[in-house]
Amino acid sequence: MAADPRLARAMDPRRTATPPQPPPPPPPAQSEQKPVGGYDGVEDVNLDSETRREREDFKLKFCTVCASNNNRSMEAHLRLSLASYPVLSFGTGSLVRLPGPSITQPNVYSFNNTSYESMRQELLAKDPRLYRANGILPMLERNSSVKWGPERWQDWPVGMPRLSEYQQGKGSKGAEGGVVDVVITCEERCWDAVVDNLIERGSPLNRPVHVINVDIKDNHEEALVGGKAILDLADSLNEAANEERVDTEGNMSFDERVPDIIADWQERWPHLPALWTLAWF
């Protein structure tokens, strides 16, 4: 019910002729404690140093895959490793095939026991002018600075520690545990081979893994563009994974957000068709 405050004041027996003293000023406002992981643009302000360090140190583990583990997967491997992501790379072909003097005369090597440097030396002895002009020698020089040699996906014993491989230059720092969170293939047939192989393995680790294909033409120019796009996708995925680690409200999990992340990424890179599935190690 509405009431006239003047009537209430007139009927108050405590009313005197002396006007009341003004109330004391309110105490200084205490800064509101923001929840860890808030989404108001200042989520890092109240993170303690240990939590902030954990977020900065945490990185998703990636694996890049193409047919011969030489061009597209290695360009992406290089970019991810330079961004401090733990990363492995593989090929899905039966043999490593590099362009030769003609389409019917490729240079063929075996996976797992042929180094990039030995390939480079062999092609340098065969025809240095040809293999420098078509970009094969510079590609092998780049590859040898990243890891020892091409590895085959189907021969990878998932979950086995890779300490000796890392010491021999066959792996990336942080990926010595032998598992990854995301596999990114560079061609649809490689995506098919990876998914089929995971099904054949029977999920012995019962560990989820996101398998994403970014379709990249197998030439040096497209590999450079594809490597940038894969790094952009990795950054988006890693940001979402970090948000889940500090989300106290129980919002959507990282696994649930991956399709939306890929859809947003696809708008930024419309010329690189993408596929995705959730599989299991």
Rank of each mutant, 00 (worst) to 15 (best):
A2F: 10
R6W: 12
A8P: 08
R9G: 06
D12R: 09
P13F: 03
Q21M: 12
P24E: 10
P25Y: 04
Q30D: 15
E32I: 15
G37K: 05
G38C: 14
Y39G: 08
Y39K: 13
D40F: 09
G41E: 06
G41R: 00
V42W: 09
E43K: 08
D44T: 13
N46R: 10
D48Q: 00
S49W: 10
E50P: 14
E50R: 15
T51I: 12
T51D: 09
T51A: 10
R52E: 12
E54M: 14
E54I: 14
R55H: 14
R55P: 13
E56D: 15
E56A: 15
F58M: 10
K59P: 06
L60R: 06
L60T: 05
K61D: 12
C63L: 04
T64I: 03
T64D: 03
V65Y: 06
N69S: 10
R72W: 15
M74R: 07
H77V: 12
L78H: 15
L80N: 06
S81Y: 14
L82T: 14
A83I: 06
P86G: 03
P86C: 01
P86N: 03
S89T: 06
L95K: 14
R97K: 11
R97P: 01
P99M: 00
G100M: 07
I103A: 11
I103G: 05
Q105L: 12
Y109W: 08
S110C: 11
F111N: 01
N113R: 13
T114N: 04
E117Y: 09
R120E: 02
E122F: 07
K126H: 03
P128Y: 07
Y131T: 00
R132W: 15
G135Q: 03
I136F: 00
P138K: 12
P138T: 10
L140V: 10
S145R: 02
V146L: 11
G149Y: 00
E151V: 09
P157V: 06
G159K: 12
M160D: 02
M160Y: 03
P161A: 02
R162T: 00
E165R: 00
G169T: 05
K170F: 13
G171E: 01
A175P: 10
G178C: 01
V180F: 01
V180R: 01
D181N: 06
V182T: 07
V183R: 07
T185M: 02
C186S: 12
C190S: 13
A193C: 07
N197Q: 12
S203Q: 13
P204V: 01
P204G: 01
P204T: 07
N206Y: 14
P208Q: 05
V211A: 05
I212K: 02
D215A: 13
D215N: 14
L224E: 03
L233I: 03
L233W: 00
A234E: 06
S236A: 05
S236T: 01
E239A: 00
A240H: 10
V246N: 01
G250C: 03
N251A: 13
F254Y: 11
V258L: 03
V258E: 04
I262T: 02
A263K: 11
Q266T: 09
W269L: 06
L272I: 08
L275G: 07
L275N: 11
W276R: 10
T277I: 08
F281I: 07
